[in-house]
Computed example of a mutant assay.
Amino acid sequence: MQFPVLKRFYEKYMMTITLAVMIMGLLFVYLSPTMLVTIPAGHLGVRWYRFYNGTDLGPAVPEGTHLKFPWDELYDYDARAQLVDQEYDVITKDGLLVATHISFLFRVKPETLGMLHKEVGPDYLNLILKPELGTTARSIIANYTAEEFYSTYREEAQDKILAEMLAELREENSYSAKNTVLIVFDRIMLKSITLPERIASAIESKVEQFQRQLEYDFRLQVETKEKERKRIEGEGVQALFDNIGTKEVPNYLRLVGINATLELARSNNAKIVVTGSSLNALPLLIGNDTLIPPAQQPQAAKIETTKGANQSPPQLLKAPSDNTKATPTQAEKPATKTDKTQTDKAKK
């Protein structure tokens, strides 16, 4: 019974219904960019109702495509871990201005994203994080001198800045209640520290001198050990010669020379072997005349003559010493007299 009524109603208002459907379709197509919102991967959304309580403080809208009324808003937030580099000018304990390059890693918290949007807004990085980090870094670095912060206490200062920053974000402030974390801080890195040129050069020179002092201390320890080694070696050599005896020292040295010559002969390199001048000399020795007893030194070879037994042996010429004067020979004496007579005649 109801179907005939609907049929008559449709036949009576067919044009009006068709026109209304077409108008609604056109409106949907026109308003679809404002009604369909896509949240990309790794992002979260926050709803804002124009006619109902404003910002939704509940869980954030997950990624995907969502439908909303044209008069409402859906804000997009990046929920991934973000790395930000920022340079701060800080003053050390000794009053020096130091440029510090700090990198920090953070991400938003999905449970409190609505409160972050309501109390701070999308520009929370410049409104909260950078100023808070700068204040915390200045208060921590002010406890260190430029040398300490530049050389040895950098890691300690970095850990203290991170701990202080986490405590600041948990405290009650104008944008969050106590123990309400809006932003999660994961890590802080002190990338570089720029000191005045003169101060940096002085600190580097001091560190260099300290390392050089450590090097000299190590050298002294090595030389002390070397002194002890040489002392023990000398005692061993002294004990060896005491056992051998003074008379057997030349024979022992000759044996050592023979062994050294054999070792040299076994090598594959090109070599020249210099042997002694007699059977009693060492096979390889420089200045062996000081080591061989006089009884074992080679005697001068006798000169054999073939012209007869009456011929006198050749005499060795000796160089005149400083205290003796050379006497003229018989051949020189007449020549000297002749020269004297010639000079006398010339005078007459």
Rank of each mutant, 00 (worst) to 15 (best):
Q2C: 08
F3K: 15
K7A: 03
M15F: 15
I17T: 09
V21F: 13
G25Q: 09
L26Y: 10
L26Q: 05
F28C: 03
V29S: 14
L31N: 04
P33V: 06
M35D: 05
I39V: 11
A41H: 13
R47E: 02
Y49N: 03
R50V: 00
N53A: 15
N53T: 12
A60I: 02
V61L: 09
L67Q: 08
F69K: 07
D72T: 12
D72L: 03
E73K: 10
Y75M: 13
Y75V: 13
Y77H: 11
Y77V: 10
Y77Q: 15
A81K: 02
Q82Y: 15
T92M: 01
T100Y: 01
H101D: 00
F104I: 02
F106Q: 04
K109R: 12
E111R: 03
G114D: 03
H117E: 10
V120M: 09
V120L: 07
P122W: 05
I128D: 01
I128M: 09
R138W: 08
I141N: 01
N143I: 02
E147S: 06
F149R: 00
E155Q: 06
E156P: 03
Q158M: 13
D159S: 14
K160I: 06
A167M: 03
L169M: 04
S174I: 05
Y175V: 04
Y175I: 12
K178F: 03
V181I: 09
V184Q: 06
V184F: 08
F185Y: 01
F185H: 00
R187P: 13
L190I: 14
L195D: 03
A202V: 07
S205M: 07
E208H: 05
R212D: 11
D217T: 00
F218K: 01
R219H: 09
L220G: 02
Q221G: 01
T224Q: 05
E226Q: 12
Q238H: 09
Q238E: 09
N243K: 11
T246E: 15
K247P: 11
E248N: 09
P250I: 05
L253C: 04
V256N: 13
E263S: 12
A265E: 14
N268Q: 13
N268I: 07
S277N: 10
L285G: 01
L291H: 00
L291R: 05
P293G: 15
Q296H: 04
A301E: 10
A301F: 03
E304P: 14
E304M: 10
T305Y: 10
A309R: 15
S312D: 13
N323W: 08
Q330Y: 12
Q330R: 10
E332C: 10
E332M: 04
